[in-house]
C-alpha cells in the first residue's frame, strides 16, 4: 500500500506526524508520499518562497527520521514562479524529492503555473494538484481549481503526470470523474474524508484501474476503508493500492533535462492568453 496524498505538520517529532507514522503501520500502509503545506502561512495558498522552503526542509527531516516510510513531495506556490522552479530544482535534483505538490495559490490556467508543471513533466515526476470537486463558489483566501483547470493543463502538457487530488474531499466527485475521463494523463487520487459508497466503482468504470491512486490525505481509515469496501476486481485493487503510484514515480535520471513535452505549436487561444497576461512561455 502506497499512499499518494499525505501531509506532515511541524518538524519531527511533531505529535501528529508520529501518529501518522504509527497509524500507517497499523493499517499496513508502507509508503507515504508526503508534503508539508504550513510554515507560518495561515493557509497553504499564501505560502511564500521562505515558507515553502521551510516546509520542504521539514519534510526532508521527516524522511531522515522514517526513510523507509516517507517519500518527499515538493510543495511550492506558483504565485512565485521563479522561486517555485528554483525550489523544485533544488528538491528534485539535490534532495531526493519525488514529486510536485501545488495548492490553490493561483488557478491552474494561470500562466504562472504552466512553466512549473512543465518543469515537473520534464523531470518525469507526478504533480499532485489540490482541487475542489466542482467549484460552485469561491473559497476566501485561495484560488481553488477544479477538474476543468486540471484538464487545461492536461491538454497542454500531455506528457505530464497530473494527479487530481482527493476525489472524496467533499464536493461533486462525479463531475470530476466525467471531466477528467478523456485525459489519459490525469490520475485520480481517491483520498478524502467523504466515503460515499459507489465512488470508487464509478471512478473505476470511467477511467479504469490504471488511473486510480490510493490515498488518505490525513483521513486514514476513510482512505483504506473505501478501497477495501469497493466492489471492483481484486486485481484492480492491487494496482490502486500501490502499483500505479510506483509506476508514476519511476523517472528517468532526473538530472537529465531531455525532450520538451510541451507542444511546440500552442493553440492560438493559448498564445492569446499568455500574451494577455505576462507573456511567459517555458
Amino acid at each position: 500500500m502506497w499512499d499518494c496524498h499525505v501531509h506532515l505538520y511541524g518538524d519531527p517529532p511533531h505529535q501528529r506526524g508520529l501518529r501518522l507514522l504509527e497509524a500507517s503501520r497499523r493499517l499496513g500502509i508502507q509508503k507515504l508520499f508526503a508534503s508539508r503545506l504550513w510554515a507560518g502561512n495561515r493557509v497553504p495558498a499564501t505560502a511564500t518562497p521562505d515558507q515553502f522552503q521551510v516546509c520542504n526542509r521539514s519534510v526532508e527531516r521527516w524522511i531522515e527520521r522514517a526513510p523507509d516510510q516517507i517519500l518527499g513531495n515538493c510543495f511550492v506556490s506558483c504565485t512565485y514562479p521563479d522561486e517555485a522552479e528554483r525550489e523544485l530544482e533544488e528538491c528534485i535534483e539535490r534532495r531526493g524529492f519525488r514529486g510536485l505538490k501545488l495548492y490553490a495559490a493561483c488557478r491552474y490556467d494561470d500562466p504562472r503555473v504552466l512553466p512549473v508543471v512543465a518543469r515537473a513533466a520534464r523531470y518525469g515526476i507526478p504533480v499532485l494538484l489540490h482541487v475542489t470537486q466542482r467549484r460552485v463558489n469561491e473559497a476566501p483566501g485561495q484560488y481553488a481549481s477544479d477538474a476543468r483547470e486540471v484538464a487545461y493543463l492536461a491538454e497542454r502538457l500531455p506528457g505530464a503526470k497530473l494527479i487530481l487530488a482527493h476525489l472524496n474531499g467533499g464536493g461533486d466527485w462525479a463531475f470530476s470523474i466525467k471531466t477528467a475521463r478523456p485525459y489519459p494523463n490525469i490520475f485520480l487520487d481517491i483520498s478524502g474524508s467523504s466515503v460515499d459508497a459507489g465512488m470508487v466503482e464509478a471512478a473505476y468504470e470511467a477511467v479504469g484501474a490504471e488511473r486510480l491512486l490510493f490515498g488518505t490525505d490525513s483521513s486514514m481509515c476513510e482512505g483504506v476503508g473505501k478501497l477495501q469496501g469497493a466492489e471492483i476486481p481484486e486485481q484492480a485493487k492491487q494496482l490502486i493500492w500501490g502499483a500505479n503510484l510506483q509506476r508514476l514515480l519511476q523517472t528517468k535520471d532526473v538530472r537529465t533535462k531531455d525532450e520538451m513535452i510541451i507542444p511546440r505549436q500552442p493553440s492560438s487561444s493559448f498564445a492569446l492568453r499568455l500574451s494577455s497576461r505576462c507573456g511567459v512561455w517555458p
Binding site: 497509524a23 493499517l27 459508497a197 481509515c221 476513510e222 476503508g225 473505501k226 477495501q228 469496501g229
Partner: peptide
C-alpha cells in the same frame, strides 16, 4: 449504504 461500512469498522479499531 450512503457510505462504505468498512470505514466505520476501521475507525472503531483505533
Amino acid at each position: 449504504p450512503f457510505e462504505y461500512p468498512e470505514v466505520a469498522l476501521l475507525r472503531v479499531q483505533f
